[in-house]
Structure formats: C-alpha cells, structure tokens
C-alpha cells in the first residue's frame, strides 16, 4: 500500500497583518508535514517570522518550537519541516506594526 499524501492549500490570497493564524488543520494520519508560505505580492515592510503550533483539541495552541522567516518579495517561498505533531497543525505569526503580506500557505502531508 502506498503511503497517503496530500497537498492542502490552507490559506489563499489572505492579507496578513498583526496577529494571524491559519485555520486548524487535522492531519493525525500524517507522520510528516512541510508548510510553505508564498508571497503573492511584495510584502509591505518586513513581515518577520511565523511559528508552527500544535494543539490537543484544535482549539488550544502551543508553540512546536519551529520558527521560520515569512517571504517578503512577490513569489518568494519559505518553508518549515515538521514531524511527530499529533493530530493538529497550524502556523501563526505576529507581523510588526505597519507590515503586511498577501499569503498562499500550503501543507504537504505524508503518512
């Protein structure tokens, strides 16, 4: 049996400013994930970093420990690798005042 694999767009053409988080993504079947963030336009200011978060229930979130840069130029892509994440995944960010980013976020899951 081949392993399951899915590419899931979890945020599309969303303008991020201030505190943001992707919707809770349930993927307990997957053993590993890569999350990609693509800037659809040049960011305004420096968008800073995003962090991977885990959850026991899809409602309460804790940092997983992985932090990665958000892209700042149009079509620039940044990513983070995650494994052993339990049932739920999301990324969150707190963009500095005045900064904003139009994001396309993709989860690539295998298990």
């Amino acid at each position: 049996m081949l392993v399951q694999s899915q590419a899931a767009v979890i945020a599309r053409n969303e303008t991020w400013a201030g505190k943001v988080a992707t919707e809770p993504h349930e993927a307990g079947w997957a053993r590993e994930a890569i999350v990609f963030v693509r800037a659809l336009h040049d960011a305004i200011g420096n968008p800073g970093t995003a962090q991977v978060e885990l959850s026991p229930d899809g409602m309460r979130w804790v940092p997983e420990g992985t932090v990665f840069d958000l892209p700042s130029k149009a079509d620039e892509v940044t990513f983070a690798r995650v494994a052993h994440f339990g049932t739920w995944l999301r990324i969150s960010a707190n963009l500095p005042e005045g900064a904003s980013l139009v994001a396309l976020v993709t989860l690539h899951l295998k298990g």
Binding site: A8, V9, I10, H25, E26, G28, T87
Partner: peptide, 18 residues
C-alpha cells in the same frame, strides 16, 4: 474565496478523544 481543504478526521473531541 472562503473555501478550504477537507480533512481526514477521527472526529477528535477535547473531552473523550477520537
């Protein structure tokens, strides 16, 4: 524009689990 991906779920609940 609001649509997102469906998921494979075990119907996990905070009070008793999957």
């Amino acid at each position: 524009a609001q649509h997102s991906m469906a998921m494979l779920s075990t119907l996990p609940q905070w009070d008793f689990g999957s």
